[in-house]
């Protein structure tokens, strides 16, 4: 493995780990559920995707054949994250969780209650 590719893989791992940490930090710090939903669905998915791409590069270069497993996991993760976020948001609207004043779409909760 050449030195340049090692630098690329290391950078991908570190960037992915930082994004994963930021996603979990926003899950802990933000004030209400609808804000908390943003961090894990976008930042954590992107961070894990970067780590998976780094792993695909590493095993493709060391084994000498293209490694497809990680691409499969990445595609699956990127497809399923929005679906589960949508279902969680729908459940939270149904339960009428407390919202901060600056959270947008305050009327959606009432519509969900009627329907």
């Amino acid at each position: 493995m050449s030195g340049f590719m090692e630098v690329v893989i290391s950078l991908l791992i570190i960037i992915g780990a930082i994004f994963t940490l930021l996603g979990s930090l926003s899950l802990l710090k933000l004030p209400d559920f609808f804000m908390r939903l943003h961090g894990p669905t976008k930042a954590s998915t992107l961070g894990t995707g970067a780590i998976l791409v780094a792993s695909a590069l590493y095993f493709s270069l060391t084994k000498g054949e293209i490694s497809v497993h990680e691409i499969l996991i990445t595609v699956f993760l990127f497809i399923t994250a929005p679906v589960s976020a949508y279902m969680l948001a729908k459940a939270a609207l149904h339960l009428k969780l407390k919202q901060q004043a600056q959270t947008q779409g305050q009327t959606l909760s009432q519509q969900e209650g009627e329907g």
Binding site: I13, F33, S44, T48, L52
Partner: peptide
């Protein structure tokens, strides 16, 4: 609330995938 806990579990799954890949 319950959706908070479900979201935290989902995030834990994603983080554990990243940990497993790093270990690999």
């Amino acid at each position: 609330d319950l959706p908070d806990r479900i979201l935290a579990l989902d995030t834990l799954y994603v983080n554990s995938i990243a940990l497993l890949i790093l270990f690999g």
